[in-house]
Design a binder for these strands. Structure first.
Lengths: 349, 349
DNA sequence: GGTAAGAGCTAAAGCGCTTGAGTGGCAGGA
DNA sequence: TCCTGCCACTCAAGCGCTTTAGCTCTTACC
């Protein structure tokens, strides 16, 4: 049995300098593609570094003003709310693809709420831990952009509203209003006049955008039996709201759910009440996932590429870190995947 | 409009020292509860630090040998496999609860596969980024424990096998074998003799443990129509395998799925073939989530507290970082939540 | 032939913190 | 009285890197 072998020592630039017979500064220049060394020396240094398996110490780098080579990501949800959800993992996975390429780390934290999240940002900033952050779930009257401004932390707001201007903050957004308009358009064409939108958390910015867009579309078409109901995204509330609206005197003929979980719970609830989908009521989920193909009938859903969304956000953040200007970029409008849960409204008998 | 306000400057120990009228070293002693300063001075320094909103720079700390105050977590799954899954988010959320208390950061990364993951560990180690790591999805003949040993990186294997001994590696495990035995016991009592276990990825250690346990149980009872089939955990394979086994001449009367996603897909597939659950075939999901209550009938499932699992793992890791010995701790056996998908086998007509 | 301009390199300071080696003052013992 | 020992504190080095200033050669040019 080998005696407790001491952990291998990490090679440093000094080791490289010694092996290559040059000064540490020369090594630094060589390895960072900075002028000041000949190509010959640069090559030699590079070879030695590789051979030694050298990697820059992020701590040292950060200390000498280069930044922490890390970005932060906070998910502000209480633990028990973190249910069945493919969006965030996919988003993160897209983010990583871009970050990994640049050897940027992702510091992840789940927080209780937005206030807690702000505390995390402050701490990260004070501790010199991150160079920038990715902000999700933008709220109405969100304190986070202000805070990031104050701290001078670059950030990308994912799913933010494009009009809000904060220096140093980029925004990556999806055109919820446009998607909602298209959706209503489609349902209208199928003859639907009574539509209920079972929305998500009321203080999320995109929830409000969707609600507003729905109201606008309804107004334009003179539909007055159209409404939105906010929920907490859970299957329980999805089912409860579904029951409530279907038991009303003039039940809707179409239901739009703000996520896949509620949509699935909703069709189950509808079935219990004797409503058949799509014969009696059409259902659309605003978010596509394997879930939508796990129930009968398969759910029509708005599908977006969450991985790509993450990639885009991360790309914007790296651009910001490179000193680029804050930008607002729009990702493609989610596409409606028509499956079996939407149909023309049944002609009155 | 305020002209591009410069980001606030982070206060350093030097600032505190100046304000408190002592040397930097005294500040360091005071703030780290080290002897060498009087209580009076300590108090004053602490007050000044608080007032300035000082937080130690992790970079500087790490550089002076204190460690990075960060632990790493790698998820080795290709992006598209990251589907509907509540386990990891819950696990991470539990981990965070413990880490946040100690102001430890969590560096998160998704990798393609285990080889890739090993590369991440190497890089993290060389870059001085993490003090320890949490390893999930242990494999049969897993290269990661060896690597961590070699690097001298403390780690906790989540769901590992308890017999494997690696100095510096703790293990947190669930008794899969015991759970499987109990499960088979219950099904046997209900009269089930033909049982198929639709397992997960074949090279995961716990998949093998479950398969072995099932075989052992079957052997003990003399059941020879019991088998395990491995899959990739996806709804697609879950459904495919279900179809295949149900179309066999003597179809099983009970199906055990290694996760909730496959179980749900499985009942749908069964229904299509005209099998009714639980009348014709009983179904149990090894993993409980909202999913199990989204289908009819509600699925009986093995439920474990993933958040608590995460907490335990993180606690072990912090103990390790504090210089404690490597330990092997067992979390409670998952509990069977009996819902509507399991029933006594139908008496032969 | 003298000088000026680079090219290619080194020396040294500094980032914010820890830490081991002092240092001065004071109390107590011989 | 002097010495010892301790307390409370300061000094300075060092962690691994970047970066500015400077230094020494070549080479080019009038």
């Amino acid at each position: 049995m080998p005696a407790k072998r001491p952990a291998a020592r990490r090679p440093t630039m000094k080791d490289i300098a010694r092996r290559a017979g040059v000064s540490e500064s020369a090594v630094s220049f060589a390895l960072n593609d900075r002028p000041g060394v000949s190509e010959i020396t640069r090559d030699r240094v590079r070879r030695v570094a590789e051979q030694l398996g050298w990697r820059p110490s992020t701590a040292a780098r950060a200390l000498s003003g280069e930044g922490a080579a890390t970005v932060g990501f906070v998910l502000a949800r209480p633990a028990h709310t973190l249910g069945v959800d493919s969006f965030f993992l996919q988003l993160v996975s897209g983010i990583q693809e871009v970050l990994a390429e640049r050897h940027l780390g992702l510091l992840f934290q789940v927080a209780q709420d937005v206030a807690d999240e702000c505390g995390v940002y402050r701490r990260w900033w004070a501790e010199h831990r991150v160079d920038g952050v990715l902000v999700v779930d933008p709220r109405i009257d969100d304190p986070r952009p202000r805070l990031l401004d104050e701290l001078g932390l670059p950030g990308v707001v994912i799913g933010g509203v494009p009009d809000e201007r904060h220096p140093g903050l980029s925004t990556v957004w999806a055109d919820d209003a446009g998607a909602m308009a298209a959706l209503v358009d489609g349902l209208h064409a199928l003859g639907h006049r009574r539509i209920v939108h079972i929305a998500g958390l009321p203080d999320l910015a995109h929830t409000e955008r969707r609600i507003r867009a729905l109201r606008a579309e309804a107004g334009r078409r003179g539909l007055d039996e159209v409404e939105s109901v906010t929920t907490d995204y859970s299957d329980a509330e999805g089912a409860a709201v579904t029951r409530r609206v279907l038991e009303a005197p003039a039940p809707p003929t179409a239901l739009i759910y703000d996520n896949d979980v509620m949509a699935v719970a909703g069709v189950a609830a509808a079935a219990e009440l004797g409503f058949s989908v799509p014969a009696d009521v059409s259902v659309v989920a605003w978010e596509d996932s394997a879930l939508c193909r796990m129930v009968k009938p398969w759910l029509s859903a708005l599908s977006r590429d969450s991985v790509e969304f993450g990639r885009t956000a991360a790309t914007e953040l790296t651009a910001l870190l490179d000193g680029g200007p804050a930008r607002t970029v729009r990702v493609p409008v989610p596409r409606l995947i028509e499956r079996d849960s939407t149909a023309a409204v049944r002609p009155p008998v």
